[in-house]
Structure formats: C-alpha cells, structure tokens
C-alpha cells in the first residue's frame, strides 16, 4: 500500500529533512537552497534496476550541472551499505540513508511501500526555492531513465527566464 502525502505534491514546498550521507555526516535539504535539486528515491542498493538507473544518472552529472542541479539518491539502506555500493558503481553523487527511523523521509514524501519495507522508484525535481516542480513514481520494475528529469530541469530554466 502506498502512503500519500499532500505536502509531497507538485506546487508544494518539499518537506525538509536531514539524513546521513556518510557515517557521521549529515545532509540537509534546506541547506542546499538556491539551486534545483533532484531527489531520486530508489528501492535498494545493488538491485539490478536501481543499478542501471543510478549508473545512467552518474554518467549524466555533467548534464545536470548545466542546470546547476544537485542530484541525490535516497533509499532505506544504511550508510555503510551505501558506501560499499557507491564504491562498487563509482557513483559521484550522495546516497542518503533513510535508515532510522526506517523510511521516515520516504513516508513524508508519500513514496514508502509499507508492504515491502522500501521506497518507491520515485523522482522529485525541486526548484531553487524548494518547490516541487515535477514528481514521478515509476512502476517499481521499470527504470524511468533520465529524460523526464531533463525535461523538468529545462522547464525550470524556461520558467525562470520567462519570469
């Protein structure tokens, strides 16, 4: 069963949170204001679909940087597991541990799978002010690729220029 959370819908300010990005090192959403953020919730480190998905994003970091966007991955795995996974895939972006209380941030964003005990495969694109501008929950077995993220980041740029 999925959680739903009104605050995680498009047009709302994304719920703030702090998670560990490494043992003993916090990452706080509100401390990254001023640039677009891409929050990638994924089910599990080392799973095949997640690995394909995150590998593609890792290759595209330069593309995301063109939009000054910051990308982070979030799953319920712990920091040591993230560290091993990140090293094995040579990932160059932070993986945040939504580990304790388990799935707390995923629940606040309405993308925790109660029956399975892990996150949906979900993406949130936030603008520089922290407002959710694009939200996509993929079927769990489908790798959504990067085209939706790039379109969302382009839309932010266009809207910014028009404003």
């Amino acid at each position: 069963m999925k959680n739903t959370n009104q605050g995680s819908q498009v047009g709302f300010v994304a719920p703030d949170f702090t998670l560990l990005e490494a043992p003993g090192k916090n990452w706080t959403l509100s401390q990254t204001l001023g640039r677009p953020r891409v929050l990638v919730f994924y089910p599990a480190d080392f799973s095949p679909v997640c690995s394909d998905q995150l590998t593609i994003y890792n290759e595209l970091l330069e593309e995301f940087r063109r939009f000054n966007a910051l990308l982070v991955g979030i799953s319920v795995d712990g920091t040591w597991c993230h560290k091993a996974y990140s090293q094995s895939r040579k990932l160059e972006f932070p993986l945040l541990a939504d580990f304790e209380p388990k799935g707390m941030v995923a629940r606040r964003y309405g993308v925790y799978r109660n029956d399975d005990g892990f996150c949906e495969r979900a993406i949130f694109v936030l603008d520089a002010a922290g407002v959710i501008r694009w939200r996509y929950v993929s079927p769990i077995e489908i790798n959504p690729g990067a085209d939706g993220i790039l379109h969302a980041l382009e839309s932010l740029t266009i809207n910014h220029v028009q404003a």
């Binding site: 394909d52 790798n143 959504p144 990067a146 085209d147």
Partner: peptide, 24 residues
C-alpha cells in the same frame, strides 16, 4: 549520440528501438 539516447529514453545498455519506438 548520448544526448539523443537520453531524449529517447535510454535507461540501460543495450537499449533497443524497433521501428522508432523503445523495446521494453
């Protein structure tokens, strides 16, 4: 090539297209 792949929904390697549509 990479940019066109991204626009075309490449999400892993290999990704195939048959008659212009992604093969899932």
């Amino acid at each position: 090539h990479i940019a066109s792949g991204l626009r075309s929904g490449v999400n892993t390697t290999p990704t195939f297209y048959i008659n212009g549509r992604r093969h899932n």
